[in-house]
Every structure is written in structure tokens, then in C-alpha cells.
């Protein structure tokens, strides 16, 4: 054992330095840069093409940069109700969509996990397959379906369920449909992974002891699939809060979602420091969920930890 580890670690440093260095330079460092720019004033950072810190001036340069820091952007964010609303409504929409995803995704994952093995594989492939086609295309397809003279309204009018076209496109309903549709595979897969491993004899035992199928489901199946529920929830909720394409294409011009606010501050108003401040706020909103997600994933993939979660 000891000799194997010794042999492995000689090349280990070489192996791990490249991806590690890449992520430090192109992920960790830029995130710090966002923080730095968010603390600078509009005047000094526009256009922000000059170096953020004047390294040639040594410590003085760093100090000078530190002296320029200001919280003005964050004060502006606090004062303007628009930013508050966009932050709150993105969390609200993402939370609603996550609940809907659980309602839609859990029965699918549960049904898929109970199929015969042959069918199970095919169904899982079918669920994942749309994920491989362009996200943009899948969101775009809904415009044609939801718009006033679109397919859904045409069909409903023909059948006679409604008398006038429904206004769905450019409302929050359209955003929710888009979110649920686009993130469904991300919810179903983690749920399926835990439900598939679930020991069927436990449910039989519960039923033998007199539990109704409904009771057995809530008392045994749901608690045992908890890791899948948490993973699916985080995997969907975190990116949905910062979603840009779905609110922009399906939600119309009045939707407030923080990802879209950041985009328009950046591309519309060209206010880079303010856009950075919005990014920092978004990150602060998500730091808790991201840390939990990271811990879960790290524990799951840790060698020797074993896939079994404490169910017994």
C-alpha cells in the first residue's frame, strides 16, 4: 500500500498542476476580479481597459488601488428598488420552478426506476437525449407554441376550451414552463439514481406491516430518496436563479430576473462596475446552496466513501 502511494505521487504533482493552475487562473482569479471591479467607481473603471492594479508601482500601487475602493455601487443597488425586486423575483421564480420540477420529475423518476431493466435503460436515454440538443433551440421552440397565434392557442381555440387566445408568452407562466422544461433532466437523473438503488424489500416490509401504498411511499420511499431530492433541487435551483436566456426569450421586457438585469447593465448600459456588483449580489445569494452542493458532490465522489447513504 505504502509503496503504491509513493509510486503514484511522483507523477502526481505533474498531473494535477495543469488543471489546477488552469482553474485558478481562469476561474478563481476572475471571480476575485469581479469583486474588485464591483468596488470601483464608475468614473475610474470606464472604460475599464487599464490594469486593475498597477503592479509596477509595487506596494504603493496595491495601496492606491485599495484606496480607490468604494461601496457606491452596492449603495446604488440598495437604494434602487429595481435591483431588489429582480433579486427577489429570481429567487421566487427559481424556487417555484424547483417545486414544479419535483412534482413533475419525481413521478417520472419513480416510474422509470420501477420498469424492467431493459426498458429502464431506454427510458433514461430518452430523458437525457433532449439535453444534447441546443438549449437555445429548445427555449425558442416554446415561443412558437405559446405565442397568441401559436400552436397551443390554435389548438385550444379549435377544441373550444377557450374563446379568446390566452396571453402566456411574456408572462411569468411562460418563464416557469421554460424553466421546468429545460431543467427536467437535471431533476429526474439524480432522483432516478437514488430511487433505482432503493431496496424494494423495504417497501414490501412496510406494506406487510400494514402500511397502505400511499403511506409506504411517504414513510419509506421519500425519506430514502432524500439525497436525490437534495441533489436535484440544488442542481436546478442554483443555475435557475441566474438564468438569462429563458426570461429574456419567454418573459418579455418587463420580467425581472437578476441574470437579465446583469446582462442589460453590462450590454445595455455599459456600466461594468454596476454589473459586477450585481454579479456579487447574485453570488452572495447562491453561496450557501453552492457550498452545500460542493460538499455533497465531494462526499459522493470521495474514493472509498462508498455509494451507500445511511439508510439502515
Amino acid at each position: 500500500m505504502a509503496s503504491r502511494r509513493g509510486r503514484g505521487s511522483s507523477g502526481g504533482a505533474l498531473v494535477r498542476i495543469w488543471p489546477f493552475a488552469w482553474l485558478v487562473v481562469f476561474f478563481a482569479l476572475p471571480c476575485l476580479l469581479v469583486l474588485r471591479i464591483s468596488l470601483s467607481e464608475v468614473a475610474t473603471a470606464q472604460p475599464p481597459y487599464r490594469p486593475v492594479i498597477d503592479w509596477s508601482a509595487g506596494l504603493d500601487g496595491v495601496l492606491a488601488a485599495a484606496a480607490e475602493l468604494s461601496l457606491d455601487n452596492f449603495r446604488l443597488l440598495l437604494d434602487d428598488g429595481l435591483y431588489w425586486q429582480s433579486a427577489l423575483s429570481s429567487v421566487r421564480l427559481a424556487a417555484t420552478a424547483t417545486l414544479l420540477l419535483l412534482v413533475v420529475g419525481y413521478p417520472m423518476a419513480h416510474a422509470a426506476a420501477r420498469l424492467a431493466k431493459r426498458w429502464r435503460e431506454i427510458v433514461v436515454i430518452l430523458i437525457v437525449l433532449p439535453f444534447w440538443t441546443s438549449f437555445l433551440i429548445r427555449v425558442y421552440a416554446w415561443i412558437g407554441i405559446l405565442k397568441p397565434e401559436g400552436l397551443l392557442n390554435t389548438a385550444l381555440l379549435k377544441v373550444g376550451i377557450i374563446a379568446a387566445p390566452l396571453e402566456i408568452l411574456n408572462t411569468e407562466t411562460a418563464i416557469l414552463i421554460g424553466l421546468v422544461y429545460s431543467y427536467l433532466p437535471f431533476m429526474v437523473l439524480p432522483l432516478y439514481a437514488t430511487l433505482e438503488k432503493l431496496d424494494g424489500t423495504l417497501i414490501e416490509a412496510a406494506q406487510d406491516l400494514g402500511a397502505t401504498p400511499t403511506k409506504a411511499f411517504w414513510a419509506v420511499t421519500v425519506p430514502l430518496s432524500w439525497p436525490g431530492i437534495v441533489a436535484g433541487t440544488l442542481l436546478c435551483f442554483i443555475p435557475m436563479v441566474g438564468e438569462f436566456v429563458i426570461p429574456d426569450l419567454l418573459g418579455g421586457s418587463e420580467t425581472l430576473m437578476i441574470g437579465r438585469t446583469l446582462w442589460s447593465e453590462f450590454f445595455g448600459n455599459r456600466d461594468w462596475p454596476l454589473a459586477s456588483a450585481v454579479a456579487v449580489v447574485l453570488l452572495v445569494l447562491l453561496v450557501g446552496p453552492i457550498v452545500v452542493f460542493r460538499e455533497l458532490e465531494a462526499r459522493r465522489s470521495a474514493p472509498g466513501a462508498g455509494g451507500r447513504t445511511g439508510g439502515s
Partner: peptide
């Protein structure tokens, strides 16, 4: 730290990653 660097970008909203890299 390394595992954190691997998993964070998986869920990080794209607008943040894009903005951060542009600033770099």
C-alpha cells in the same frame, strides 16, 4: 480547494462566469 474549483463552475450561473472571464 481543488474539488471546489471543479464543482463550482458546474452550477455557477453563466452570466457570472462570462463577466468574470471578460474582466480578466
Amino acid at each position: 480547494l481543488f474539488t471546489g474549483l471543479i464543482y463550482a463552475p458546474l452550477v455557477m450561473p453563466e452570466v457570472i462566469v462570462g463577466l468574470a472571464l471578460l474582466l480578466l
